[in-house]
């Protein structure tokens, strides 16, 4: 076991996969110098410039070139530095990469990974460097989506994404990069589409992803002091979605709270809630609650950011209201 930060785990997973398969190549802004979040440290030195391609600030060309390289037999990992920047290469992300395999009748696959820093987490990065945009990607059939909550997940999910023959967006969380954890030493791959019950509980199911996993675990600790045992599910991936894990948990707890960092407007929690409404209706004893980021651009002022970000107090209050302990809107 080695103790790794989330950012070190990403670099380690990249190194593991590049050593394992010489078709794996990296490209992106500043990746040669280790990346602005230090998630590619040492890779240029170890694997050389023809496998670690430093690109200019050209997200369309980065995503498009990754796509062309994948068509020609490579397995590119492209860094999109801040996930807000997916908007600048949205044609490639929504219109090109996910459609190639289908449109060509299976002639071409897209074994590529787009990865980068997502989410708010109270860092004050503002509206164009701090959004949580998993919901953008979730609207596009053909993309797989992973979003790790811990260093071990960052390692294992990225390794799985690189080995996958479909395009995968890995939303790393910029507020988690310095989090440390013991990570397995051996080849560590977490299959896409398998959620984890990270805390068992009987009273309520909290469905979380990435940074909201830690938020829900902290909320569950606090809820326990009020006599509420919350079960926390770490989805790990949105596509494939482990709906079975959610439904099985709801069958045990009969209450569902979905906690997502992206804005609530068509956030991924809406899909979870809809699945529960359709498939777990008779297991539920209370309405499904969604706790999400605010439906506004992310403000910078700490007081405002805290208001729109998902937080432990908001989750605690939401669950307590759901269980009848509080009369309170969950927002």
């Amino acid at each position: 076991m080695a103790e790794l930060t989330y950012r070190q785990a990403i670099a380690a997973a990249l190194a593991q996969e590049m050593a394992r398969d010489e078709r794996v190549v990296l490209l992106g802004e500043d990746v040669a110098s280790g990346g602005v979040f230090k998630t590619t440290t040492g890779l240029r030195e170890r694997f050389g410039p023809d496998r670690v391609w430093n690109t200019p600030i050209s997200e369309q060309a980065i995503a498009g070139a990754a796509m062309g390289a994948a068509m020609a037999g490579l397995r590119p990992v492209a860094e999109i530095m801040f996930s807000d920047f997916y908007a600048t290469c949205w044609d490639q992300v929504a219109n090109e990469i996910p459609k190639v395999r289908y449109m060509t009748g299976g002639q071409l696959s897209m074994p590529l990974v787009l990865r980068g820093a997502n989410g708010s987490g109270g860092l004050g990065f503002g509206s164009q460097h701090g959004q949580s945009v998993e919901n953008w990607a979730m609207c596009v059939p053909g993309i797989k989506i992973a979003s790790p909550a811990t260093p071990a997940e960052a390692f294992g999910l990225l390794a799985a994404a690189i080995r996958d023959n479909d395009p995968v967006i890995v939303f790393e969380h910029k507020a988690l990069y310095s989090r440390k954890e013991q990570c397995p030493d051996d080849e560590h791959v977490i299959p896409l589409g398998r959620a984890a019950v990270v805390r068992p509980g009987r009273d309520c199911t909290l469905v979380a992803l990435s940074i909201t996993v830690g938020i829900c675990l902290a909320a569950a600790d606090e809820l326990a002091t009020h006599g509420i045992e919350a079960e926390v599910i770490d989805l790990r991936t949105l596509v494939p979605l482990d709906a079975a894990a959610v439904l099985a948990s709801v069958a045990r707890t009969s209450r569902l709270v979905v906690v997502e960092e992206n804005p609530g407007q068509l956030g991924w929690g809406a899909s979870i809630a809809a699945i529960a409404a359709q498939e777990a209706f008779y297991d539920l004893t209370a309405p499904v609650i969604r706790i999400s980021g605010g439906n506004v651009p992310l403000p910078v002022a700490a007081s405002l950011e805290a208001e729109v970000d998902v937080s432990v107090p908001r989750v605690v209050a939401g669950v307590r209201a759901l269980l009848g302990q509080l009369r309170q809107s969950t927002g």
Partner: peptide, 17 residues
């Protein structure tokens, strides 16, 4: 215009190989 970077990426792969 969207095919241009795709060609660039394929050419990158060709150059590498």
């Amino acid at each position: 215009g969207a095919a241009a970077p795709i060609a660039v990426g394929a050419a990158w792969a060709a150059q590498r190989s």
